[in-house]
Design a protein around this nucleic acid. Structure first.
Lengths: 232, 232
DNA sequence: TGACCGGAAATGGTCTGAGGACTTACGCTT
DNA sequence: AAGCGTAAGTCCTCAGACCATTTCCGGTCA
């Protein structure tokens, strides 16, 4: 087995076996090199790999540690790769977001958090009174993020956050020909979601969220250039 | 900015800017070092980070390339980290799987693939006639995987595969006191899903899949030790 | 006694140089 | 034209040295 792969497998084994639990500290690098039988360069490349995946954290001058190993923080590392996915793949991801966020929105409506509706209402007031693309994106993320958090599953929140962050790069809301129509449709979608949450109607909330995100998918799909036929 | 972070940002920028598209080849390491202004060690650590995330691939003797950048292959890299998540977090992930797989199962039922039902039926025949834990796990994965594939969204399939792979480590099906009862319940759940697909009933398929996975969640939850109170 | 501070030790971060291993492509031979 | 061997290109691994940051401990001062 290659040196870096050997180190990678060894480090993962130390965690998987329970020898090192969440937030535990690894031995110093020279000691790990000896234990794993690889050079320091190879060990460090293996550590970097696991750090990129959110499994390990290196702190300069302090040591190398196992991360908290909670799904939400691991999933959030995904944004580094998801942000590079081309539009074609983003459409597949948006279907995931639609399904998950619809579920989370229904859960939020069922939970009856007394402060949620007021908080969402304030966000929408500000969202409807701005035309700045960056602020729209920020407030939209705040609205959907607050709902997902209220849904009670941090993993779902993390996943939808990552996907929303990728979609946001396409800037549907740049001022242009259809800006007013798109903004109006989007605002109405948000109000429908809020209304369902206010009336504690999970089914309506799920439908409204699903429809709202499906609308986003349609707008993004319109940006996709037609696939080029293979010319001989 | 730290050297490795500088290299990481530079590499991502080369992809994000469109300078290098999917499957494109990077310049040789020495050239990249010069371009990014870092040493080879730092460059290689940055490359390893992105390779761990499925964004780039290094081929010994050939070169370093941008990956295909499709969501499914990027998500599958997640298994390296998800497999290390403790049980507590797996329960959150299983809720994600339940929602996504329920959606995919409904889509599979609606699609009316003529060969799907026969393929699934054959898998279930073999699954119901074995008591080997490894084979049960393999056939269960084949059953659910075939359904998700038929759902038409490879991203959903990849996500559910990763989560199912993690849950499988807990080996609910080890022969033991409740083995027969658990196996019987599981087999019935599978038959209910297949029945809904055979009758082209998306709503029933979604419900059956959701119930089946929720049952798995209950079994796993039973394995969870009670949280220890903090002692002074 | 307590807080503050300085330095030493521990630890990860970076750079350089060398040689090895694998892939690819080219030119030669048959 | 096909097969083969060699050479060039490229990534992989190792070793050693030095730098940057954190942490801890002992001394100092109020």
């Amino acid at each position: 087995m290659a040196a870096t792969d050997k180190a990678l497998a060894g480090l993962r084994q130390m965690i998987a076996s329970g020898q090192l639990g969440p937030r535990a500290k690894f031995p110093p690098e020279p000691e790990l090199c000896d234990y794993l039988g690889v050079s320091r360069s190879s060990l460090r490349e293996a550590v970097r790999s696991l750090a990129a995946l959110g499994v390990i954290e290196s702190r300069h001058g302090s040591g190398t540690y196992v991360s908290a190993l909670d799904p939400a923080s691991i999933i959030s590392r995904f944004s580094l790769s998801v942000e590079l996915i081309p539009l074609e793949g983003v459409l597949e991801l948006l279907e995931v977001r639609r399904v998950l966020e619809s579920h989370a929105t229904a859960a939020a409506a069922a939970r009856q958090d007394p402060d949620l509706a007021a908080k969402l209402s304030e966000i929408l007031d500000r969202l409807e009174s701005t035309t700045d693309a960056t602020e729209i994106q920020f407030l939209d993320a705040a609205f959907h993020g607050a709902i997902c958090s209220a849904g009670g599953n941090p993993t779902v929140t993390a996943l939808t956050d990552v996907i929303r962050g990728r979609g946001g790069h396409y800037r549907i809301f740049e001022p242009g020909a259809d800006f007013n129509a798109i903004k109006l449709t989007s605002d109405r979608g948000h109000r429908a979601i809020l209304s369902a949450i206010e009336t504690r109607d999970p089914a309506a909330a799920a439908t409204a969220a699903s429809a709202h995100i499906a609308q986003t998918e349609l707008w993004l799909r319109a940006l996709r250039p037609e696939p080029q036929p293979d010319l001989p």
